[in-house]
Amino acid sequence: MFKEFALLGAAAVAAITGYATDAFGVGQPEAVEGRIYHYVRSNQDGSGAENVYVYRAAYNRLEIYKSSERCVDAGFVTAWVDSETGNATVIQGGRLMPEARHENFATISYDGAATMLRAEAALPDRMVRQQVRVTEPIFHLYDADLATLSVQTMGLDDPRQGFSFALPTIWTEPEDGQYVRHLGEANAEFVRAEEYQGTAALRFDVTGSAFGDNGGPLWLDAQSGHVLGAQWGIPNRPGMDDFSIRLVETEDSGDAGWQALLTDHFAGCPTV
């Protein structure tokens, strides 16, 4: 089950106060509640691809559904985030069930006073309770596929000034028994404005102790600041070689659209 817990792993994703300050500090509001972001996460060569859908259910709550295809196991995550920094105060991870239901079996919480990131999960044979110290003021769980990173970047007056964050992760197949890890710090430095798959974007070079020599580019939407894509040299889950994520589309269909998407995953599928 801890393996499926890694499916909370991303996107990738964002919820702010319901509006976004544009990337150039103009302050043009953009409604974001009710928006669904569809990402694809894979190795940089395209292998191991998985769909990651992020729903901005509220200004401080994200819901994430991810799976390689319909009718197979799918992860479902709910994250409560700080609306300015993107720090996830509580994350509940589990699996999607038929009829848009979900089952939780793991919880991650951050204790700001103790600067501890704590995880608890129900494995088939035991409970796992672990923690790691995260002292940096802003962090993003790497296996959440840059989901909460969009909260931070959409809240910046001008991301071109650069920004930093810590990068902890849940590693679901640890040889040393340590599931909860702190990889180090990531630093994003603005490179240039360019197009990313037909969208006006801001490109950053992301380096830092979290990556060693294996950082890479990050693209943000030039208007709203949300994550468009990234290519980094270290994987965010077991079985992968590196990391790539790209935004495929967005849809402003609200709760009705989200429930329809979740329901469709198992609709008409053979039962086991």
Rank of each mutant, 00 (worst) to 15 (best):
A88H: 08
Q28N: 12
S150H: 07
A23S: 13
V248I: 07
A256G: 13
A100E: 07
A114Q: 06
M127E: 11
V54C: 14
I108P: 06
T107F: 05
A121V: 08
L220K: 11
V81P: 01
A15H: 01
A256L: 12
I170S: 06
A57E: 03
E249A: 10
A100S: 13
D242Q: 04
E50N: 13
R61S: 13
I108L: 08
T199N: 03
C269N: 02
I91R: 01
V180E: 01
S68C: 07
A49P: 04
I91D: 07
I138P: 05
A20K: 06
I245D: 04
R56Q: 15
A201V: 02
T17D: 14
Q92F: 05
L167A: 01
A100D: 10
A12Y: 06
R181L: 07
R129M: 07
A106D: 02
Q223R: 11
T107N: 12
V72Y: 10
T135H: 12
R237E: 12
R41M: 11
G48L: 03
M97T: 03
G18Q: 04
G162I: 10
Q231D: 13
E194F: 05
R56V: 15
M127D: 05
A122S: 06
H265M: 08
Y39E: 07
D111R: 12
S67L: 05
I234G: 13
A79E: 05
W219H: 05
G229M: 00
L218K: 01
A57M: 08
E194P: 00
D242K: 02
A11T: 12
L220I: 02
Q28Y: 10
V52K: 08
Q223Y: 14
I91S: 05
F2S: 13
V90A: 02
G25C: 01
Q44E: 12
N43G: 15
A88M: 05
F165S: 03
E173P: 03
G155F: 11
R126D: 13
A166H: 11
A201W: 14
E103T: 12
S244N: 14
Q197P: 04
N187Q: 15
T263V: 09
D241K: 08
C269H: 10
V248M: 08
Y59W: 14
Q231H: 01
L8Y: 02
R118H: 03
G215M: 10
E195P: 04
